[in-house]
Design a protein around this nucleic acid. Structure first.
Lengths: 223, 223
DNA sequence: CATTAATTCAATTGATTTATTGAATAGTTA
DNA sequence: TAACTATTCAATAAATCAATTGAATTAATG
């Protein structure tokens, strides 16, 4: 094989991987699967797609080796093929943040409409805050996702049941809410709700997968 | 805006960035521009494309904010919009290496055909070797690229003039050749040539941009 | 073995993407 | 200002991609 043929093959193969990521629905699926395995129906519901369409996108991701499947009874669960998939997704995400003003703008506008406080702490800041025991950390994802893995010392307070946990939360301390990632709005909703109830609340910029991949302290239930 | 509308916009914008990367020619352009600025004609020649086609791809990259331009005389020079573009490219590249057996296979087959020794040292290993002063480091890219920036202590020995440097190279020490990146074949060609001439030679797995972005020691000519 | 539920396949249509060609534009130099 | 050069634009046709629909698989259960 000559030099051009070699390059055509290498860049061609890599562009197949990039093509598999180059679709809004598939990016949302990747972002979701960073939390762990989900069935086709769960993925379809979450992304607002028909089951057939979700399945089709999942086949595309599977062919590109970005996801893998495990069976459990009647269900097929999809999850990311490995940590490199998440890394590539983060690379793309940060690229979007850095140079695409439209991404920043959309996020800013959306969150402006939901709460006054646009601040968010990043992982490093939160680590410092936690060392001083100033904060209560809230995992507002589903209980299932919490059990799969959560930030050390976080309490499970799913967004749709947040009201029932209100009494147990101390008024003095800062509440920090986190969810699936920077595009997940659960933490924003939680912060809005908590601030309305008179709490001092702020969201964590990153989500659980970002925290975990940095090697920061986590815990999970034995399965 | 509702939650779905927000997500559609965010993932839609990010998929536009991914789409801009999802083409073999554009990936090769990104990989090249990691070395520094190049004109449209240089890019067209390097990628084996017509000037019009190269220009069209560059417009696509520019619209996605992945590259930016600077003028100098008659020429327009394209370069990466920032360090995040390179990071995203590396994320994709590593993803290809990790899960796409086809990429590994193509590289292995190609390099098998060119030299017996498939080994390559990585950056960390090279740093150790250099501390013991066991190696002579050769930058086999163009002299121009060397001047823009090179690994500290490397000699400029462009691949097409490598023969003229032969006498000056010590027979006892290990020669380590590096070039633009893992898909650049200059270092492979250099290693094959040097081994043929009785030298102990090996390539660096990564290219100059990978070395530089890790914060490892570099030097460059004042411009 | 038949039923059921979850998932995938196949065919269609409309929308994007790509390489090619040749013409147009915008800066530079004489 | 005219000629030149590097780059971009516009139009085309072939190829690829996405959402929809309904039918076909596949594996577990009665």
């Amino acid at each position: 094989m000559n030099k051009r043929g070699f390059k055509d093959k290498v860049y061609g193969e890599l562009s197949r991987v990039a093509k598999a990521m180059a679709n809004p629905v598939r990016l949302e699926i990747i972002d979701l699967l960073a939390q762990g395995p989900f069935s086709v129906e769960q993925i379809a519901n979450y992304t607002g797609q028909s089951v057939a369409n979700a399945s089709q996108h999942l086949q595309t991701l599977k062919n590109a080796k970005l996801v893998r499947i495990t069976r459990d009874g009647n269900f097929i669960y999809y999850s990311l093929a490995g940590v490199n998939v998440f890394n590539a997704w983060v690379g793309l995400r940060e690229l979007g943040f850095a140079y695409n003003a439209e991404v920043e703008k959309v996020m800013h506008d959306f969150r402006c409409g939901h709460r006054g406080d646009l601040n968010a702490v990043d992982a490093a800041t939160l680590m410092e805050m936690m060392e001083k025991e100033e904060v209560v950390l809230l995992d507002v994802r589903t209980e299932d996702e919490y059990n799969r893995g959560h930030i050390h010392k976080a309490l499970s307070t799913p967004i749709d049941k947040l009201g029932t946990y209100l009494k147990k939360l101390p008024k003095g301390k800062t509440l920090v809410a986190y969810c699936r990632g920077p595009f997940c709005v659960y933490a924003d909703e939680a912060v809005a709700f908590l601030q309305e109830k008179g709490h001092k609340a702020i969201r964590l910029k990153e989500g659980y997968p970002d925290w975990a991949i940095k090697g920061l302290p986590i815990r999970h239930k034995e399965s």
